[in-house]
Simulated assay, not measured.
Amino acid sequence: MAGDVAQLKDEGSKRQVAISGAVAGLVSRFVIAPLDVIKIRLQLQVHSMSDPTSIRDLKGPVYRGTLGTLKHILREEGITGLWKGNIPAEAMYLAYGSAQFSAYTYVSQLLASMPYTQHLPGAANSFISGALGGACATTATYPLDLLRTRFAAQGTDRVYASLIASVRDIAEQEGVTGFFRGLSAGVAGIVPYMGLFFASYEGLKPVLAPFDTFGTSDAAAGVLASVMAKTAVYPLDTTRKRLQVQGPTLKRYVHHNIPVYSGVLQTLTHIWRNEGRRGLYRGLTVSLIKAAPASAVTMWTYERVMAALLAMEEALEAT
């Protein structure tokens, strides 16, 4: 294996990697849940703040920025409104974190064992591993992601009575494909995102290592890597959210005038033509704010849990 490939994929057994990734995802999700709800509400808001006519015709609340959205949700829905969709999201993050790190480790080791790829530069290895790992994890957990979005998009009027009811209703009214609306946008976004994230993360770790204090270099590397990757692929994230709420319940969410979209390219084109570039990046600020604690907590927790598991293994072997 190339010597400059970072230790993330070399440390621990597959089980230890899966456990560390799952715990990291679970803890991270709990911390950033309110920011996630705010981001989704902003992404689903179809209007231009500079166009008074657009605002006047808006069917649903008018959210003005991160703080304005936070205050509106607290005032109209209470503090629990900030954790709407948290149950499927927690399940998604738990499964996603485990699948992501496991797939990343497996692909990295596979590339290292193949004669034509074992001498790949560390950045190339990380990009391929991160991209494929992210695609696998996204596909496996996508139904939970869709449920998270739909619950977060609910206002004071509930669309689904419960998580079980939502699964039953979607299965009956939309079929199996209903759980995968927008998957192509998700995969198209996660491949470059995870590739860029892991490549940036592992490139930044040795640079920031000399400034490490109590593991802060891991957190800082995670923050910077996530911000760069998130900004690059954000329009696809907005597209995914718009597609996830399509279907028979489209007009029942907090915004009742979300257009009917039929595919990734059509959605991107429609948003660009009718809402402009700002429409594609609506909610980016809160997304980046979310990315900082999410990535920092994820990577810091992953490294700490892995270190604890390795220490436990050494202790058991010594007895």
Rank of each mutant, 00 (worst) to 15 (best):
I258Y: 02
G134H: 08
V297S: 04
G85K: 08
L163K: 01
S166Y: 05
S98K: 06
F127Q: 03
E275G: 06
A294I: 03
S126V: 05
I79K: 14
V297L: 05
T213H: 15
T267A: 09
L110F: 08
T141E: 10
L58V: 00
N274L: 03
K9S: 12
S102I: 09
F101T: 08
T117R: 11
A95M: 12
H72I: 05
I19A: 00
R148A: 15
G78M: 12
R64I: 13
A22Y: 00
P115S: 10
L243Y: 01
L144G: 04
F197M: 07
L310F: 05
G195A: 06
T139I: 15
A112K: 10
G3D: 13
D212K: 11
S126M: 01
I128N: 04
V167Q: 07
L224S: 05
K230R: 14
M49K: 06
L268Y: 12
L132C: 13
N257I: 04
T80Q: 04
M49W: 03
Y201G: 02
R56C: 13
T269G: 11
K9M: 09
F151R: 06
V23T: 13
V167Y: 08
V305A: 09
G215K: 05
G134R: 08
D36H: 07
Y116A: 14
R64G: 01
G178Q: 06
V286A: 06
D57R: 14
R150H: 09
A103K: 01
I164R: 15
P121Y: 07
G215W: 11
K84V: 03
T105A: 13
L67N: 00
G60A: 09
I38W: 03
V233R: 03
I73P: 02
D169V: 10
G195W: 04
Q118V: 03
Q118G: 06
T156G: 13
T177M: 10
G195I: 05
N274M: 10
V107H: 04
D51Y: 09
L144R: 03
L35F: 15
R15K: 09
H72Y: 13
V245D: 00
A229H: 07
T139S: 12
N274K: 15
A188K: 03
A89N: 15
Y96T: 04
P235V: 04
M49T: 10
V207T: 15
P210E: 13
G60W: 02
P121T: 10
D145E: 11
L111N: 05
S50V: 08
L196K: 03
S48C: 10
R158W: 03
K251E: 12
T285A: 15
S217F: 05
G133I: 06
G155R: 08
